[in-house]
């Protein structure tokens, strides 16, 4: 999941926190990131609620090593634009991968 690591690294550089006020304007990299997201902007994007209803299936496809972006491209597109859904996908993947690892281990032992 190298692509996911890259995305997380990009967005983990959070803009200044409130403690840094008074504000000096929007940091260049924030505008650059926003401008970069324009290229991928498409008319039929789905919003957070619909992505949430598909997120568990999407995460399982990823956890199986299949190409989730090809199978569910609209979810992928949303994840690229939405930091909160991206965080939730990352955490969900961590949970199900740990769960499945134990499951496979138990199956071998059993």
């Amino acid at each position: 999941m190298k692509w996911l690591d890259k995305i997380i690294a990009l967005f983990s550089k959070r803009p200044p926190a409130m403690g840094d006020l008074p504000q000096k304007g929007m940091p260049l990299q924030v505008v650059a990131s926003f401008a970069g997201s324009l290229a991928g902007t498409q008319p039929g994007e789905i919003a957070c609620d619909e992505v949430d209803s598909l997120m568990d299936g999407f995460a399982e496809i990823m956890a199986r090593g299949e190409d989730a972006s090809r199978i569910m491209p609209l979810v992928r597109l949303h994840i690229d634009h939405c930091p909160e859904c991206r965080e939730e996908l990352e955490a969900l993947l961590a949970v199900i991968e740990a769960y499945q690892q134990d499951d496979h281990h138990a199956a071998k032992v059993g």
């Binding site: 803009p15 926003f34 997201s37 902007t41 957070c48 634009h81 939405c82 930091p83 909160e84």
Partner: peptide, 29 residues
Amino acid sequence: GVHGLPGDQVAAMLKTNRNALYKMMHDAR
């Protein structure tokens, strides 16, 4: 972008929800 607030917090402050906020920012993009 300036204050670094997450989308769901912005949505709560503006008395809307994350879904509506995404649609608004999709329109902006």
